[in-house]
Design a protein around this nucleic acid. Structure first.
Lengths: 128, 128
DNA sequence: CCTTGACTTCGAGCGCACTCGAACTGGGAA
DNA sequence: TTCCCAGTTCGAGTGCGCTCGAAGTCAAGG
């Protein structure tokens, strides 16, 4: 590949490396409608733009925070419909944020128990 | 069932309600070695003691924090081997705690992006 | 006595999110 | 010009964590 042909786009595996997913997953995301159809070169190969990569990075954040693929698809569809869905997208994110906050609170509780157990094990080890 | 027969133990579905899992899952956890074989009544039905329930509650915390079933099994095996595995159990928990902390840090990053997006959507809505 | 309903075991099935193999294509380097 | 490599599509397979249906048992209530 001659990078000078187009320095601003990435192949599927370059994009995969960039966002920390596999090429398989990127193709699958596209197939599942999480990503709008990616541009192709003359040979039909995907070329990821900066915008595409930014979008993928956002998707990885949503996944990491536990958003189901189904909801990411919904979000993607809304985004493709343009500005009249801004409110719906905000609401989707707000609902998701609430779930993330709830999850973080839960994690803190569980972490406290974990710390307590570690403490107890330490004491028992020193006693035994 | 006559509660007076044994007020201190629970049936599988009572225990499931208590810990927030299903009876199916409780049997499966036992089958998978996450729980030591549960005591039975004269008819072969499981009777969960307070200790059993406490153990299950700990397991649900470990699951919620993302510990794989495989690791929970390992922990369970260590616990059954008695006090000489206290150190190993502490180490297992410490490693898990580190993963939970890393995950929480990641969640906070992702939450910040989420909040930023919500903010931007709000601005765009007011502008449009 | 008979019915009801919650239990038992067993193995199969499911939903999610990838993950991969097979067969094919096309462009650049030797 | 021949080779190789990275890409393409398609459908099938995987790993995890349950989830369920079938067939049978047993104790208690009517």
């Amino acid at each position: 590949m001659d990078a000078r042909l187009d320095e601003t786009t990435l192949t599927v595996s370059e994009a995969a490396d960039r966002v920390g997913l596999t090429a398989y997953t990127l193709r699958w995301y596209e197939q599942e409608g999480l990503v709008a159809p990616v541009g192709r070169d003359s040979a039909g190969r995907r070329r990821y733009t900066g915008n595409d990569v930014d979008w993928l990075m956002l998707l990885t954040r949503l996944r990491r925070t536990g958003m189901p693929v189904r909801d990411m698809r919904r979000y993607s569809e809304l985004a493709r419909q343009g500005d009249q869905t801004l409110g719906a997208r905000r609401e989707l994110f707000e609902a998701h944020r609430d779930r993330v906050l709830a999850r973080m609170a839960e994690l803190e509780q569980d972490l406290a128990v974990l710390n307590f157990k570690i403490e107890v094990y330490g004491q028992l080890e020193r006693a035994g």
